[in-house]
Amino acid sequence: MRLLILGGTEFAGRAVTEEALARDWQVTVFHRGRHEPPAGVAALHGDRTAGPEGLSALTGGEWDVVVDTWSGAPSAVRDAAALLAGRAGRYVYVSSRSVYEWPVAPGLAEDGPVVEASADDWDDVPYAQAKRGGELGALAAFGEDRTVLARVGLILGPWENIGRLPWWLNRIARGGPVLAPGPRDLALQYIDVRDMAAWLLHAAEAGLSGAYNVVSPTGHTTMGELLDACVRATGSDAELRWTDPEKILAAGVEPWTGLPVWLPPGELHGAMHCGDVSKALAAGLRCRPVDETVADTWAWLRGLGGRAPQRADRPVVGISPELEAKVLEG
């Protein structure tokens, strides 16, 4: 298979590139040149934020599949897809479950209502509208029969540049009492970036089309199992002190950003961690155990000296030692 990956050097795109190379696919990476792509790919340089002229490197060539991880202005997806529609077989767009209209009911499937959006937006728009606009741009060029919309949820694993699992691993590695947000058996729903990559390429090979919620089944792991795995992976003497959500929230700790991954039981948790993924599972999605995701992320992180890359357009996650101590002592 001949793959064109739009991106391909960081986190999700990197995982897709590595998976394709492992399958002996011919891989072309189109990126801005800020990061080195994996060895063995053909590299094309351009800048999608510069409009159509930024895509000049893509005016030649043919591919079996395009994978696009873009999360900015939807017009960038529209323009790339329009340029490639006659020279590529299938367009796989990494979208998000954020495209569903709020409130998102637990158990919502792919036929749920989505936000109003446009593929023609050039300016920054809210994340949900950006991803839905990207979907519309891909569909306009490739049609429903040649487009895969992978609506992912929380992504974890090696190469993470958001900081969620790296923050927990580094915090637990320091040891001592650790603020563990309860309840301990709180169900989580996420996808290992490598499992996501494998399914995207499988979808292309199998000729799939349409929208899929690409994330693990709800309860694939729990908050307790995730943090226990962090303790095992790091070999730390950390003491997980499970704390009621009400106490954490009363102290001003922000769910999701202050304590990454965690959302207290309620509407937000139901929307993020309780989606229907039966369609993707029936279409071949497989999810590795949480211990493997955590251990491999820790090995990667140690190789970087504990300092994970950080996307400039995303907030730094985690709480300060002072705030953590205040909650634990309160």
Score class of each variant (00 low, 15 high):
289 P>V: 06
289 P>N: 01
290 V>E: 04
290 V>Y: 07
290 V>H: 05
290 V>I: 15
290 V>R: 01
290 V>A: 01
290 V>K: 01
290 V>Q: 04
291 D>L: 01
291 D>Y: 00
291 D>M: 01
291 D>A: 06
291 D>P: 00
291 D>H: 04
292 E>R: 13
292 E>M: 08
292 E>I: 10
292 E>C: 05
293 T>K: 09
293 T>F: 10
293 T>E: 09
294 V>P: 05
294 V>F: 07
295 A>C: 02
295 A>F: 03
295 A>W: 02
295 A>E: 08
295 A>Y: 04
296 D>S: 15
296 D>K: 12
296 D>A: 13
296 D>V: 09
297 T>K: 03
297 T>H: 06
298 W>Y: 10
298 W>V: 06
298 W>T: 04
298 W>F: 07
298 W>Q: 06
298 W>G: 03
298 W>N: 02
299 A>W: 01
299 A>Y: 03
299 A>M: 00
299 A>L: 04
299 A>F: 00
300 W>V: 12
300 W>N: 07
300 W>H: 11
300 W>T: 10
301 L>F: 15
301 L>P: 14
301 L>H: 15
301 L>A: 14
301 L>M: 14
301 L>V: 15
301 L>S: 15
302 R>Q: 13
302 R>S: 01
302 R>V: 02
302 R>T: 05
302 R>Y: 02
303 G>T: 06
303 G>D: 08
303 G>V: 09
303 G>E: 10
303 G>I: 05
304 L>N: 08
304 L>P: 06
304 L>D: 09
304 L>I: 09
305 G>P: 11
305 G>M: 07
305 G>D: 10
305 G>Q: 06
305 G>K: 05
306 G>D: 07
306 G>A: 09
306 G>P: 07
307 R>F: 12
307 R>N: 12
307 R>D: 14
307 R>G: 06
307 R>P: 01
307 R>L: 13
307 R>S: 13
308 A>I: 03
308 A>C: 02
308 A>Q: 05
308 A>W: 12
308 A>V: 01
309 P>S: 09
309 P>Q: 11
309 P>K: 10
309 P>C: 08
310 Q>T: 13
311 R>M: 12
311 R>V: 06
311 R>G: 11
312 A>I: 11
312 A>Q: 12
312 A>T: 13
312 A>R: 14
312 A>E: 13
312 A>V: 13
313 D>A: 00
313 D>R: 00
313 D>M: 00
314 R>C: 10
314 R>Q: 13
314 R>W: 15
314 R>F: 14
314 R>E: 13
314 R>N: 08
314 R>D: 09
314 R>I: 12
314 R>T: 13
315 P>N: 09
315 P>F: 11
315 P>A: 11
315 P>E: 08
315 P>S: 09
316 V>I: 12
316 V>F: 03
316 V>Y: 03
317 V>E: 05
317 V>R: 02
317 V>Y: 02
317 V>P: 00
318 G>D: 02
318 G>F: 03
318 G>K: 00
318 G>Y: 04
318 G>Q: 03
318 G>H: 04
319 I>L: 10
319 I>F: 02
319 I>Y: 04
319 I>P: 02
319 I>S: 05
319 I>D: 05
